[in-house]
């Protein structure tokens, strides 16, 4: 059977977007329509006249992805074609929780029956690794660079899943491309649950984060194993499941493999920053009962 996302795309070697999209389509199956905003995924898969998609695909703009998806859903409903076909909006963190915030909020509030998959690689990778609202604390990006008087990004990640829970979404979940079975199961569940559902997939970017192309999956796992990226499910607003991490690894194990955190190991005071990052992981353990 031919893959639903075809080879020949221009993603970097070791691309997280391709993996996330591949898992999403494996879960959704061929009877789906993919809506995608401007970003790496769209650029690398659809250079005219080529497309990597073996499912119907539409890209409009950067900030309107969920609105376009709601229009697709409305069209199918109006024409009596809605039912089996799954509608999946798939976008990066910038398109989802920064510039597309209004659009996704509106679509979820209106209750369209679709699934939004956020491929979170924690910065604007398509434009050259600029900071987004999903960039983690103390990460160095091209617009939040570490420097003589800066440890990089000064704010923690925006808690997008919580925002989607607050919209009354029946199913909100976090996942990671480092856990294919987890991600495929959750996307499958998300597309099967009626109403607007949200899957937030942590997706390490080799180019933006600065690690070897072979380490995409390994780094993704480390984020989960250090409890910096908890895997949990929220159903009708309640926490129903969280992946246990019996022996959490120290955050250094995750940080030291990435160029974007390199300064924490070389700058004076970097150890204090690492302690703060460890505190974020510890807070996740507490909040989601990871141990």
């Amino acid at each position: 059977m031919k893959p639903l996302l075809q080879a020949g795309h221009r993603g970097c070697a070791g691309c997280c977007d391709a993996i996330a999209a591949k898992f999403t389509l494996m879960a959704a199956g061929e009877d789906c329509i993919v809506v995608s905003p401007t970003g790496c995924l769209e650029v690398m898969t659809t250079p005219y006249p080529e497309s990597s998609w073996n499912v119907p695909f539409i890209h409009s703009l950067f900030e309107n992805n969920a609105a376009v998806a709601s229009g697709v859903e409305a069209a199918l409903k109006a024409k009596g074609e809605f039912g089996k076909t799954k509608i999946i909006a798939m976008g990066g963190d910038g398109a989802t929780l920064d510039i597309g915030m209004r659009s996704i909020s509106g679509a979820f509030e209106r209750g369209h029956d679709f699934t939004y998959v956020c491929i979170d690689n924690e910065a604007y990778m398509n434009t050259g690794v600029q900071r987004s609202g999903a960039t983690p604390f103390a990460a160095s990006t091209t617009t939040s660079p570490a420097g003589k008087v800066s440890f990089g990004n000064i704010r923690p990640k925006k808690n997008m899943p919580a925002i989607m829970v607050a919209h009354g979404s029946p199913y909100v979940t976090t996942t990671s491309i480092g856990y294919p079975k987890d991600m495929i199961r959750k996307v499958k569940k998300a597309v099967d649950v009626e109403g607007p559902t949200y899957v937030h997939a942590h997706s390490p970017c080799t180019t933006g984060w600065g690690f070897d192309t072979s380490k995409t999956i390994e780094i993704a796992k480390l984020a989960v194993e250090t409890c910096l990226w908890p895997l949990y499910e929220m159903e009708d607003g309640e926490l129903t499941k969280a992946k246990k991490i019996k022996n959490p690894k120290p955050v250094e194990d995750y940080l030291k493999m990435q160029r974007r955190f390199k300064h924490l190991f070389t700058m004076e005071g970097g150890d204090e920053m690492i302690k703060k990052i460890q505190a974020l992981a510890d807070a996740n353990i507490e909040k989601f009962g990871l141990q």
Binding site: I33, V35, I58, S60, L61, E63, N64, A67, V68, A69, S70, G71, V72, E73, A74, A75, L76, A78, K79, R102, S103, S105, G106, A107, E109, R110
Partner: peptide
């Protein structure tokens, strides 16, 4: 919809879907 931006954006999706 929640804005004119989404009003017309939704129609990108609906029109492309044949509506």
């Amino acid at each position: 919809v929640e804005s004119e931006f989404s009003a017309i954006s939704a129609l990108v999706g609906s029109s492309a879907a044949g509506a």
